[in-house]
Write a protein that binds this DNA or RNA. Structure first.
Length: 325
DNA sequence: ACCTTATTCTATCGGAT
DNA sequence: ATCCGGTAGAATAAGGT
């Protein structure tokens, strides 16, 4: 059976119909050096493990839309528009337009207008009929507001929405404010996505104080069993490297330094951003690129004190590994 | 809800390139 | 003259009771 390359949305399409862009994405050797490609779905980046080449960034989300209805990964099908957890109805409910015009812009008969009016009334009653749904509406509004105030990216807001929905499902809300819980969800989501903000920053855009948010977060984290690990310092490298305009060599070296440090457990308890910044500094120094500790600190939000404390440890570990080879 | 602990930050200064 | 490295004390995050 021959399959066309046309990408159809009918339910007969299977994995064999994976479009060209999808196949391209799954290619796993670096065109430069043939090394392995790391896929970082979270940040939408693909980078070469060997030479640090960034193949593309800010790719489209390949996540949930390309899904299966059975419990295996085999029979995947294209489905409709991606759902979003940030709408109280997940973006799936029917909406009836407001204007009394048909699709061509012509006005419609008074009889039809009456019908439409009745439909709208009932539709409204069905879609937001109970208190829970209205609470979700309000909470998601708050999430949007805070996320945009803090400049948090789309996937992060999405995660926050999912978390909040789970919190509601698990009955975590009675006894604490919606505001505190939404803030906590966003805080958790930001950390999961490697775009953390301090609790203070959240408190400043939230309508509640830092303390209730902190409590809500801990409650949320333990009740939902969120295992939020500290971010991998390597994730910060591509971003920092381009902001500081260091060479590809230096970025690759920084990567090696971090690997060596991780092998020796230097990273536990330390801030990932600090480690990444220090690795960049150390690498720039080894490749004779002029970067002051102060410049690094400004761009990365890490103090110069931390940069020098970490970078000494990092280089020490790196040299040991280099000698042993 | 309070307290402890490890880490990071701000401010500062002497010394080196 | 600028950059580096070290230090003291305040602030912060996370965990325990």
């Amino acid at each position: 059976m021959t399959r066309t390359t046309v990408h159809t949305a009918d339910e007969g399409s299977t994995r064999n119909d994976v479009p060209a862009i999808e196949r391209e994405r799954q290619r796993s050797e670096c065109p430069e050096c043939g090394g392995r490609i790391d896929h970082d779905e979270e940040h939408g980046e693909r980078t070469c493990r060997e030479c640090g080449l960034v193949l593309d960034a800010d790719a489209i989300d390949y996540g949930p839309e390309w899904r299966t209805f059975e419990d295996d990964d085999e029979n995947r099908r294209r489905v409709g528009a991606p759902t979003t957890a940030r709408r109280h109805d997940k973006g799936l409910s029917t909406m009836i337009g407001w204007s009394d015009e048909d699709a061509y812009g012509n006005s419609i008969s008074s009889r039809k207008r009456e019908q439409l009016r009745r439909l709208r009334t009932w539709n409204e009653r069905f879609t937001s009929k109970n208190a829970a749904e209205r609470n979700l509406k309000q909470a998601f509004g708050e999430l949007e507001r805070m996320a945009s105030a803090l400049g948090l990216p789309e996937p992060c807001r999405e995660t926050a929405g999912v978390l909040y929905r789970r919190a509601v499902d698990e009955d975590l809300l009675p006894g604490r404010s919606i505001e505190a819980m939404t803030t906590a969800c966003l805080y958790a989501a930001a950390r999961q996505h490697g775009t953390p903000r301090t609790l203070v920053a959240f408190a400043s855009v939230s309508r509640v104080d830092k303390l209730p948010v902190q409590r809500a977060y801990r409650y949320l984290s333990s009740e939902l069993g969120l295992e939020i690990e500290p971010a991998d310092p390597v994730h910060y490298l591509p971003q920092y490297a381009s902001e500081l305009a260091v060479s590809d060599d230096a970025e690759r070296l920084a990567r090696e330094i971090l690997e060596a440090a991780k092998a020796r457990d230097l990273h536990s308890g330390r801030s990932p951003a600090g480690l990444a910044a220090a690795a960049i500094y150390g690498a720039a120094r080894l490749t004779n690129e002029r970067l002051t500790q102060e410049t690094i600190g400004e761009e990365t939000g890490v103090s110069s004190v931390t940069v020098r404390n970490r970078y000494r440890e990092l280089l020490e570990a790196y040299e040991e590994v280099a000698i042993s080879r």
